[in-house]
Design a protein around this nucleic acid. Structure first.
Lengths: 343, 343
DNA sequence: CTGAAAGCGCTTACAG
DNA sequence: CTGAAAGCGCTTACAG
């Protein structure tokens, strides 16, 4: 009961009057005479003993803590994916260590490094990578030795990242499908609220949208593309900017639902009605958007499953040495935020 | 480059042709001849060396990973608080290990136990406790030895929990203030969408609301109190139940914004208008509610600051041995979801 | 089944 | 400043 030192296995062994080895075995459920076992368990209970996970890990016991690195847990998109990861982790009796980089590439590398140091059995990287060769090399320099050391890595939403298992939402196809759906509603003049160009997801979604429009003979005026952070306020700001430019677009496509939410707020603040004055569409289908008024038209991604699949990939041994790639399609869901427009 | 074994300090020391001690010192930025230092750093770089955090922790180096346990990261309420925690943690160069119990008391204890085993320097418990004596004892049995061992603990939103530092949103006062505000709008017949009785937050908010109404001579009909899970769907279900009971309430108070969102959805689905047919108020002021249509009337809690303060408490030594208690007030924010009603 | 001992990979007094 | 050595708290062959 000394208010300082930690109770160790040795204390337990001494109290139970057995050897260290026996104490260890009893606590770990290995074969031990019931009588000794009871004595050990009783002593441990009495002393409120908790094994030192570090010593245990050092001594070779396997670790049960996987690391998950995402851009921002407070973003519903990542929260939903993380929820999926945790579901599967929980089923497998794994503790999840969730970290947020707040979109700082440096910090992502720092986290991977810390997780490596912790000898986490698996690391999940959730969210778009950055178009930055230097960063890519640095990340690879961390991941490579980790993988060589037997670490498992799975990523969500990033391509080309090493030869690791990955879950890839079909951003490009989804954006293209959205373009088609909006064209079908009769829209011909579009604006896009985009995120930072450095994110690969931005390139994919913007590219898919633009190309599909082009296929229909509709061009996207560069002045109708406004860039902002991938946040609610980023969407608000981008929409405001667009309005101040006096865009003639009848429909705005925000590259994420979160931005779309900000855009709707900006429109509302300007006294404009969605979808009567202008249609708004998003991407992701985060849970909240169906509860908005009007509900948001979007490309629905199976967010929770994205996380579940990533965790499953990291958990299952990859026998063939090739990286596994799971593509998960998105589906356009038309809701109240987009209106038909007479041509 | 063997694709199995981990590179250890010894490998680095050998490659740099120095002793283990020197290699350790060089890597940790302690005084070492520049020449040797460079050799060590170069060797470490070349071998992609990462120190084993477990060995380091065992050997006495301090750990930089704090644990945060909340009910559900996918809930915007906890996400916002976690965001605050992470902000302060980041400023202090700490890694945050975020865990979700999904409101399972057993799991909370399991997480504390794991964190104890990890010798995390601090553990933060975020979210209402449960009214369950057995659980309380079990939790205390985990926390006590952890505290005695020098661990730091801070909690958000739970009272009576041991003698640990805590941040307490004024749930009771906030709910009372909300009652007053709604009475001022002219409402006299209320309904409450409540969460599980076992959560202390429920008792506080419900109690504060009810007592303030009573003070004004307004009684809360037990039939007008519907209980459901603290989730969007829980709010949806509870509201549906209330409607099916044919309640005559002119105003519904949901104990959390998340439930209020579900309630609004249920009303919408029934073709009822908020606030024309019925007023709805929530509690928490999670970020999204100001973007709803109508925006939600609620008790605004400084969510991010709740997290920041908790982390700060855990980080600053408590010299006086008494537990510190930070009360943080909530403020009623009237928005579009509540209407005046002619008396 | 049980115990003595080696070893996991570091850090840090303790000598030099 | 540098090195040899002890020690952190476990687990696990290895003998008995």
């Amino acid at each position: 009961m000394q208010p300082r030192a930690h109770v160790t296995l040795e204390d337990v062994a001494r109290a139970a009057d057995v050897s260290l080895a026996t104490a260890s075995r009893a606590l770990n459920g290995m074969r031990v005479t019931p009588q000794l076992r009871d004595r050990v368990l009783a002593a441990a209970e009495k002393l409120a003993y908790t094994p030192n996970a570090h010593a245990r890990a050092l001594a070779g016991a396997s670790d049960r803590t996987v690391g998950v690195i995402c851009h921002d847990v407070t973003d519903p998109y990542f929260a939903a994916i993380a929820g999926g990861v945790m579901r599967v982790a929980g089923d497998n009796d794994l503790l999840v260590m969730l970290a947020s980089t707040f979109r700082d590439p440096e910090r992502e590398i720092a986290y991977v490094s810390m997780l490596r140091a912790e000898r986490a059995p698996a690391i999940l990287l959730i969210g778009s990578g950055f178009e930055d060769a230097r960063w890519e090399r640095a990340l690879e320099a961390e991941l490579k030795p980790y993988l060589d050391g037997g670490g498992r890595v799975a990523v969500v939403s990033r391509h080309r990242s090493l030869k690791v298992d990955s879950v890839l939402p079909e951003n490009k196809a989804g954006a293209a499908a959205m373009a088609r759906a909006l064209l079908d509603l009769g829209h011909r003049r579009f604006a896009v609220l985009s995120g930072p160009r450095a994110l690969t997801t931005v390139a994919d979604r913007l590219g898919g949208f633009r190309e599909e429009l082009a296929r229909a003979g509709v061009a996207l005026d560069p002045a109708d593309i406004v860039e902002g952070p991938f946040t609610r306020d980023g969407g608000y700001g981008a929409m405001s900017e667009l309005l101040s430019r006096g865009s003639a677009a009848t429909c705005v496509f925000a590259l994420t639902d979160v931005m779309a939410i900000g855009a709707c707020a900006a429109l509302r603040d300007q006294g404009l009605s969605v979808p009567d004055d202008i249609s708004v569409a998003g991407f992701d289908d985060i849970p909240i958007v169906r509860d908005l008024t009007p509900a948001l038209t979007t490309v629905a991604l199976p967010l929770q499953r994205l996380g579940e699949k990533a965790m499953e990939l990291a958990l299952t041994e990859n026998n063939g040495r090739r990286r596994r790639l799971l593509r998960m399609g998105g589906e356009v869901v038309l809701r109240g935020s987009t209106a038909k427009v007479g041509s």
